[in-house]
């Protein structure tokens, strides 16, 4: 564990807490893409298959449980909770995310560390996480103005993987034989997808104005 990875995990945890706060406090999920939440639930379920088989540390196990639990709880809330699901704008959240799942699965069968179920699922979860934010970003551009909590949620979600890139650079130079090309390249693509969001987020923060994404 290094400071970059710990900072990344904490930033990721904050993004989840901000989303839970928004849904719990406002009893609304307006501006949140259910499809991105479903993709993230699939990312965690396919990545943490080894949750009970190989124990790494209490921290690792706890965080995996938190990410799996919170992503499933958010999907459940947006689909089942009477008040929350009413605020879900399904006619705006129209990204064909099943194509993302299919494309990532095919890529994972072709490019992986080993052709085993666990490694193919791991690579699938890495590729899927890289593109999971797309439905959310498309929804934000369609819905124009972004409420603060939603903006903060997306910001922290994007920032966490940037910390992980620093972590991979750090580990590459400090540990022998450490290579995570699949995770690193996917992580760079993932962070790059947030580039324009980060730009408009910074502008809105600098001008102390509402976050506006160009349509």
């Amino acid at each position: 564990m290094n400071i970059f990875r710990f900072a990344g995990d904490m930033t990721h945890l904050i993004s989840v807490l901000v989303l839970l706060l928004k849904i719990y406090a406002t009893k609304s999920c307006s501006g949140i893409s259910l499809k991105t939440q479903e993709l993230y639930a699939l990312v965690f379920l396919s990545r943490y298959l080894d949750l009970f088989t190989n124990y790494i540390s209490l921290y690792n196990t706890l965080m995996k449980l938190v990410f799996i639990g919170s992503s499933l709880a958010i999907v459940w809330c947006m689909r089942m909770h009477h008040a929350v699901k009413r605020s879900y704008d399904k006619e705006v959240d129209t990204f064909r995310h099943y194509y993302l799942v299919l494309a990532c699965f095919v890529l994972a069968t072709l490019v992986n560390e080993q052709f085993t179920l666990r490694e193919v699922c791991w690579a699938f979860s890495i590729y899927l996480e890289a593109v999971a934010i797309l439905p959310q970003l498309v929804l934000l551009q369609r819905s124009g103005n972004v409420d603060n909590l939603t903006g903060q949620y997306v910001f922290f979600l994007g920032a966490y993987r940037a910390f992980y890139i620093l972590n991979w650079i750090y580990r590459y130079f400090t540990e022998q034989y450490f290579t995570r090309w699949i995770a690193c390249i996917a992580g760079i693509v993932q962070t790059a997808l947030y580039a324009d969001f980060f730009y408009y987020y910074f502008i809105s923060w600098k001008n102390n104005a509402k976050l506006q994404l160009p349509a």
């Binding site: 990410f67 992980y164 995570r180």
Partner: peptide, 10 residues
């Protein structure tokens, strides 16, 4: 043999 890549990251 190739050690199974231990995925120690989240």
């Amino acid at each position: 043999g190739t050690e199974a890549t231990m995925h120690d990251e989240l």
